[in-house]
């Protein structure tokens, strides 16, 4: 399995030291993660700062990646999102990451929701891109938590189908 190979490779790099391991991850995943970061933070200079912070933060936690349920890349992506949302909150960055024309500069996952309804897209955006809790989004959209759960589920299924 691809996941096991990467985890085994990461383990072998870690047995040598953290630096070779993080260098290996940077070489393989920095472009993927930079594209991922840009969907949250369209400003390249801010996104570069966050990318540096992501690798610096994860450098001391690579043993967690080896033991995680997720693959190394997906684990990094989940942890990166937490750091990105935290960075945006601390720096008061625009929460929706929209450019002047109302469209995100790097739409990323939103490109997979083109055939979703406006409500499904909004719920996905509020929860995934802005890190909102279901309860918060429910209040914001004047809906019940159950309706938000349903809309999120529907948006995720559409996203998955379009990924195939």
């Amino acid at each position: 399995m691809e996941t096991l190979i990467i985890k085994e490779t990461l383990r072998s790099k870690l047995s040598v030291g953290v630096e070779p391991a993080i260098d290996y991850l940077y070489s393989n995943y920095s472009s993927m993660l930079y594209g991922y970061v840009l969907q949250f933070i369209p400003d390249p200079s801010e996104a570069e700062k966050v990318l540096t912070q992501i690798f610096t933060n994860l450098a001391g936690r690579l043993d967690e990646a080896c033991d995680a349920t997720l693959s190394v890349y997906c684990w990094m992506q989940v942890e990166a999102r937490k750091l990105i949302l935290d960075y945006k909150k601390k720096n008061g960055l625009e929460v929706n990451g929209h450019a002047n024309n109302g469209q995100p500069k790097n739409a990323y996952y939103l490109t997979l929701l083109r055939n979703a309804t406006e409500e499904q897209r909004t719920v996905f955006q509020e929860m995934f891109l802005n890190g909102g809790a279901k309860e918060e989004v429910a209040i914001k959209m004047n809906k019940t938590v159950q309706e938000i759960s349903r809309l999120l589920k529907e948006s995720l299924i559409i996203l998955q189908k379009n990924l195939q």
Partner: peptide, 18 residues
């Protein structure tokens, strides 16, 4: 495992070199 591969493939296609 299947969804992880889809996500990684998508991330590869959407990659932007820093």
């Amino acid at each position: 495992a299947e969804f992880e591969i889809q996500v990684e493939t998508f991330a590869t296609n959407q990659s932007v070199p820093p």
